[in-house]
Design a protein around this nucleic acid. Structure first.
Lengths: 245, 245
DNA sequence: CCGATATGTTACCCATGGGTAAGAAAAAGT
DNA sequence: ACTTTTTCTTACCCATGGGTAACATATCGG
């Protein structure tokens, strides 16, 4: 609409210049779509982002996106896949190297933590696989299982070689992966903690624990998991529908 | 439509009998809506659940829901609030009791883990606060901060009284809370692990760690966080739009 | 029994946003 | 220069689903 031809002022790093030469390579554009999309999806959530918004951020219009993707859900899947590839390459690299089970686990924790602070890394845990087609969701589930199995494998190897104390690999892997995955939910680029700080600290904390004296007896007298009781909330009184929101 | 009067065959435990007497208390119905809603939201995801489905499961129709809630997002908020209340009551109970910082932390871990295996508990971490009105989202954020602060407080108290080794309470709390929150994402009622097993194991694992020998030096030689490279995916070739999905 | 109130139902509105059709404008081939 | 192919735009379609209006039926106080 604004007919100012000599001022290209495009969005930061979009291969599409506002109204000008369009010639960059296809793959470059495809990836630019993914970068814009993943950012918006993380910011606002998949369902609140419209394809119009994605396109607008790239100086194009919605139908142009369909030159590169079959639909919104495919864009989501490709974003997710980018993250999965990053993890896979990390794992490949660790597998290529040596070290005890514990050493490998620590490498994985460190790299995975850092990944969770990136857009495509976070997309791995912030996107809902139910938004994908059944076919793509199946691919994603497989990839997730592969990652989970790697955690367990390193832990099991560690208990075998003595670097990790005996424990249930399944639950231990869940605990560690959970702590790591959660980073993708709370990490903010503008926060106080740098990805390196987080990765370093998690590497120690998730393997060394907190208790001063290991092996101490734990008094398992926990408060009973409170069964839902009508806890006298302030919602019981008169009906409160109607009226403006 | 089906004119079979003597066969009430209602959905399991809905206060609305298919076509009969309707007289149960208001609050009971309100809570029944929440139970049905939270279950559907967790099963299918908030955005994929329609109010018609919620109503149908309760043997009523959509507009009837508006007698109890102002809109879909308020139902979501109330589900979330139920979970928050459960956590709050756990915290209150622990605060009332005594024990070292570590002991309190373990109680919290144990109870919180068990909570994550319940519907309303899981709703605490599986719902997207961005689906709420700004006003309700603010309430939720406050509640979350209160919970997070409790973790940190117990940890700080533990380092002060010597039951927990020196560490950054903020990151340690993130790690523990992350592992716990993640339970809400992977726990299945029909899985192999019972909530008690999970809670017990997590209580140990999250405080004792895995390494055989504490305080050992960690070789921080991790593989560099792999920068995104054009990893030659099979997406580079010819365009593949068009054709059926 | 008889209104008043609470609670449901049927029938509708309509904004939203994913997706498509048809054709213009570049790029690329010749 | 010309056609051909790719890329992008304008203009639309339409299913979905949250929300509302108007009306019906219990329930309850009297």
């Amino acid at each position: 609409m604004d007919s100012a031809p000599p001022a290209p002022s495009s969005s930061p790093s979009s291969p599409w210049l506002p109204f000008e030469s369009r010639r960059r390579a296809r793959d470059e554009k495809r990836e630019a779509v993914l970068r814009a999309a993943v950012q918006l999806f993380l910011e606002q959530g998949y369902h609140r982002v419209t394809l119009n918004e994605v396109a607008e951020r790239l100086n194009i219009t919605k139908p142009a996106l369909y030159n590169y993707f079959r639909g919104k859900d495919e864009i989501l899947f490709e974003c997710w896949s980018m993250g999965a590839e990053l993890v896979d390459s990390v794992i490949t690299e660790i597998n290529a190297g040596g070290g005890s089970g514990l050493a490998k686990l620590r490498k994985l924790v460190h790299a995975y933590a850092a990944l969770m602070a990136t857009d495509f890394g976070a997309s791995l845990v912030r996107f809902d696989l139910r938004d994908l087609t059944e076919r793509n969701a199946a691919v994603a589930r497989t990839a997730k299982k592969r990652i989970d199995a790697t955690f367990r494998r390193y832990i099991a190897a560690g208990t075998a070689d003595g670097s990790i104390r005996p424990c249930d690999p399944k639950l231990a892997a869940f605990a560690i992966a959970g702590a790591l995955n959660w980073i993708g939910h709370w990490y903010r680029r503008d926060g106080e903690l740098s990805p390196t700080e987080i990765a370093d600290e998690f590497t120690v904390r998730l393997t060394e624990g907190l208790a001063s004296e290991s092996r101490q007896q734990i008094t398992n007298k926990t408060p009973r998991a409170p069964q839902r009781r009508n806890s006298g909330r302030a919602t019981s009184g008169k009906k409160r529908t109607g009226g403006p929101r």
